[in-house]
Every structure is written in C-alpha cells, then in structure tokens.
C-alpha cells in the first residue's frame, strides 16, 4: 500500500490520468516512427546491396506505404510521404506528435532528445536522392531514436533525469561563480 501523500513528493510516481494518457500515446507514436524508419531502412539496404536505383526503391516502398494507409498514386513520392509529407503516418508526424506527448510526460532532456530526432527531417536538403542517402538518413533517425530510448530508460528506471530544475540549479551556480 502506497502512502497517498508520499506519492505527490516523488516525480516518478506522478502517474496522473493525463500523464498516463500521454505516456501511452508517446509510446505508440514512437513505435510507429520506429517501424516506418526500419521499413525504409531495410528496403534501402537491399537496394544498395543490389545496386538498384531510386525508382526501384520508390516502387518497393510504394506497397509498404499502402500497408500503412498512405495513398500513393504517384510511386515516385512514396519515400517523401513516408518520411515527411503524410499527415498521419509519416515519420515526421509520428515524431512531432510523440514530442507533443513528451512535453506532458517527460523532462526537458527527453524533449531535447526527441527534438533532435525531429530535426533530422526538417532540413530540406536532407531529402534522399539515392538509396544510399535513404539508408544514411534512416540510420541517423534510428540513432536519434536510440538516444530517446536511453533517456526514457535513464529517467524511468535510474532516476537520472536532467530536469528544468537541474538546468536552473546549474544556471544559478554558474551565475554565482561569475
């Protein structure tokens, strides 16, 4: 039996309704982003190994996009839709929505980690022009996602969250030293 008043003093136990709701959805959106990234990564790896060109990669991704409910009348746009353009199922949308949930759930450290992942897709020049580009970009996204998982792991299980409180404490300390 948990002593009710003590819960309020332990940040890790503040699993209020709204926090749980956001936690679940953050997990779901992260998983969707992770899945889609791995699908593209896999197809891109095969394309690079087989020496296929971008047209072939787009055609392969077209069916993957269809499975995810993304209408791809123009197969040349499949990669773009999966990465960034589709309003619901793109990696970009999944990550930005997960970040929205994270603002309610996590510490500033988690938000930073997710923002780093989002940033990989915000640069227009990063749009892949070849299967190798697609492979490198998705590798980068997967790396960023791993960083997110590490923060979650640290925050939830090891209580090492870098919170705004800690950022503020360091800031005050730095001011005093000056």
């Amino acid at each position: 039996m948990v002593e009710p008043r003590s819960i309020a003093y332990r940040p890790d136990r503040w699993l209020t309704d709204s926090r749980v709701y956001n936690l679940i959805w953050m997990g779901r959106w992260l998983e969707r982003a992770d899945n889609t990234t791995r699908v593209i990564n896999n197809f891109a790896r095969v394309a690079v190994e087989n020496g296929s060109d971008m047209v072939a990669l787009q055609q392969s991704l077209n069916s993957a996009a269809a499975i995810r409910g993304i209408p791809t009348e123009d197969p040349r746009r499949a990669l773009e839709l999966l990465l960034r353009r589709h309003e619901v199922s793109s990696i970009y949308h999944s990550l930005t929505t997960a970040r929205g949930n994270a603002t309610h759930v996590g510490t500033v450290e988690l938000i930073r980690a997710l923002s780093e992942a989002v940033l990989t897709l915000e640069d227009d020049s990063a749009m892949p022009q070849s299967p190798l580009d697609a492979l490198l970009l998705t590798n980068q996204i997967l790396e960023r996602l791993s960083a997110v998982y590490k923060v979650i792991d640290d925050n939830w299980f090891h209580q090492e969250a870098l919170s705004e409180e800690e950022v503020y404490r360091r800031f005050v300390q730095q001011q005093q030293q000056q």
């Binding site: 039996m1 948990v2 009710p4 819960i7 309020a8 503040w14 309704d17 709204s18």
Partner: peptide, 23 residues
C-alpha cells in the same frame, strides 16, 4: 505535478484529490 482538469476531483471529504495510477 502537472495536472489537467480531468486529473482532479472533489472527494467525499470535500477536499480536492488527484487521480494517480498508484493511488
């Protein structure tokens, strides 16, 4: 804790309570 309206309710003792998974 950061709470939304749905996290809070007024209990039988007239006090405000926060809904939490662990109690």
């Amino acid at each position: 804790p950061l709470v939304e309206g749905s996290d809070l309710y007024v209990g039988h003792n007239g006090r405000v309570w926060a809904r939490c998974l662990d109690g």
